[in-house]
Design a protein around this nucleic acid. Structure first.
Lengths: 192, 192
DNA sequence: CAAAAATAAATGAACGTTCATTCATAATTA
DNA sequence: TAATTATGAATGAACGTTCATTTATTTTTG
């Protein structure tokens, strides 16, 4: 038997509602009243959990980002070879982005707008360290191109968000074969 | 002597103001009143040029996107080799994204939010055709990986936006050497 | 070529609506 | 029942948009 506090349930409902509304209409069309209604909560209740709308968005961002990065490393082990480790993490990231579309779209929107404040952005990046460590190891081993992690991220991870976007807009349909192609492109851009 | 109509000047001022405000605060914090003030125009005047706020955003998007793609092909010739042609276009895109930061940030925001409606998105893509043609030729010649243009775009072009974002947030500083590294990564991800 | 008339462009105060936020009250819990 | 949690109507600020009016430009007239 597992107990979850009532307030935790409300928080989760609020997170879900916020993600959903911001996702489909953008920040500017996700009023607190609608978020409250969708979460089956009164508008006033939101302010028991969050200081204001900005705080709500920031916290939701951090929560979703944390879930995202947790998922990325769920079965990762530090003694993996660089190539195997990268493949493992990359596939997880892709799986998340293509299956948890709601969350992923929300993150993509947050990461490309001034919606989130800088401290929360920093906070959201915390859990990415294992990937950075892996890349550093790869560079020491002469396997990974000797460029900044931002560059590695830009070419191997960031593109997944684009593909997800295109799939969401029904401009492409990503089969497992396509995902494999994408992985090969990611790897070939960062390997020496 | 070159004559520019007064209304064109106003339009340009409005475009500039819209880009600037949406850029720094997001769509939700770019009220018509502020846009008007920044463009030295009365709020009412905006509605002589644009049907409503959505229409303003859509049109500004198309205008900026067109400028962006025009810049991409400014010195491109169809008889270039695939590799030379791609390098040419890529460098132009990078130059635009890193020099016309305001416009580029605005586009990045538009492309990752539900801010712009679908018809305007389609319109904005129109002028990218030469790049798609080049890729197709490259695929026929066995130089470019046989994957969809969306995939090629995701891995070779889209990453530039990420790097631009990071530079804007002062997390990296892109020297010409870095831009070259980035180009090599873009090319290695799409070449066979 | 002035002066007058007509048209067009631009204004900004005002309107109705929507929003984030508050708070007096109610429900729940322990 | 005292304390905690939740409610939702109320509030005032801010928003997009309108429109009666003013200002600028063009056309017509004598």
């Amino acid at each position: 038997m597992c107990t979850v506090s009532k307030s935790q349930i409300k928080r989760e409902a609020l997170v879900k509602a916020t993600v959903n509304l911001v996702n489909n209409n953008g920040f500017h069309a996700a009023p607190m009243s609608k978020i409250a209604k969708m979460a089956n909560v009164s508008p006033g209740t939101i302010y028991l959990y969050y200081k204001n709308k900005q705080d709500l968005i920031n916290q939701v961002y951090i929560e979703v980002k944390t879930a995202f990065t947790k998922f990325a490393f769920k079965d990762y082990e530090e003694n993996f070879s660089v190539e195997k480790g990268f493949k493992n993490i990359w596939k997880n990231l892709a799986e998340f982005k293509l299956k948890e579309v709601e969350e992923a779209m929300f993150l993509s929107q947050c990461d490309n707008t001034p919606m989130i404040d800088e401290p929360s952005r920093k906070e959201g990046l915390k859990h990415l360290q294992p990937l950075l460590d892996l890349w550093e190891r790869g560079q020491k081993e002469g396997i990974i191109k000797p460029v900044s992690p931002y560059m590695l991220y830009a070419f191997s991870i960031y593109p997944i968000a684009f593909l997800m976007n295109m799939q969401q807009r029904e401009l492409i349909k990503l089969t497992p074969a396509h995902v494999n192609d994408a992985y090969e492109m990611a790897w070939s851009s960062i390997k020496i």
